[in-house]
Structure formats: C-alpha cells, structure tokens
C-alpha cells in the first residue's frame, strides 16, 4: 500500500458526483431555471418550498448533491488545467485551488442547510 496515491478517494468523489449530476441536474436545472421562469411550470409557493427544504431528508439530499457536484468539478477541472493547458508543473497550486474551492463550497452548503 505504501506509495499509493490518495487519488482513489478524490476519484470516488468525482465519479459519484458525476453520476449524480448526470442523473439529477439536467432535469432540475431545466425545471427550476427555464420551465419556471418561462411559465411552463408554476413556480412553487414559498411556504411549500420552506416545508420541502425544511425536511431533513431533503436537506441531506441537497447537501450530498452540492458537495459531490463541487468535488466532481474540482477533480475534473484540475485535470483539464493539467492537460488542456499543460499546467502540470503548477500541480500544487491547481490542486489547492480546485479541491480548496470544492471544500469551501461544501462547507457553505453545510452551513446554509444546517441553519435553514
């Protein structure tokens, strides 16, 4: 085991985040940010949404989605910069920015959903 990288951990976040994003996000984004603003779908009332998000299961799901989607981005974007722009020599900086950004986003999501 010695010398093996921590990459499997980040990859597990990347791949579960990617799967979740692929399954959930297109429909969610289409409904919330296109169908509702265009009036194809009635905007849910504020009270209903408060009740929905107030439920612990909803909050847990939202947290999982946001956290994993963030780390999906962090991991994938890190390699996009490495390979797409040939910035591998900046690996320390890039990894810090990508995973750091994902961690901050996860922390903010945890705070917002915890105090909802």
């Amino acid at each position: 085991m010695k010398g093996r990288s921590i990459e499997p951990f980040f990859w597990s976040l990347f791949s579960s985040g990617g799967m979740l994003a692929a399954l959930v996000l297109p429909a969610l984004a289409l409904a919330l940010w296109v169908a509702i603003p265009l009036g194809w779908l009635q905007a849910p009332g504020h009270q209903h949404l408060v009740a929905l998000i107030g439920h612990p299961v909803t909050r847990l799901c939202l947290f999982g989605l946001i956290a994993l989607a963030s780390f999906h981005w962090g991991h994938r974007f890190r390699f996009t910069l490495y390979d797409g722009l040939q910035l591998k020599h900046l690996f320390g900086l890039i990894a810090t920015l990508c995973y750091g950004g994902a961690t901050i986003l996860t922390a903010v999501a945890a705070y917002v959903l915890w105090t909802f």
């Binding site: 093996r4 990288s5 990459e7 390979d83």
Partner: peptide, 15 residues
C-alpha cells in the same frame, strides 16, 4: 501490479 499501477503516473493520469 496494483502497487505499481495505482500511482499518479499509472491509472490516475488517465482522463
């Protein structure tokens, strides 16, 4: 083989 391949230059370099 896993010791050799599960490194940054092994399977994890593949995108």
């Amino acid at each position: 083989r896993m010791d050799h391949l599960s490194r940054d230059e092994g399977i994890w370099a593949c995108t």
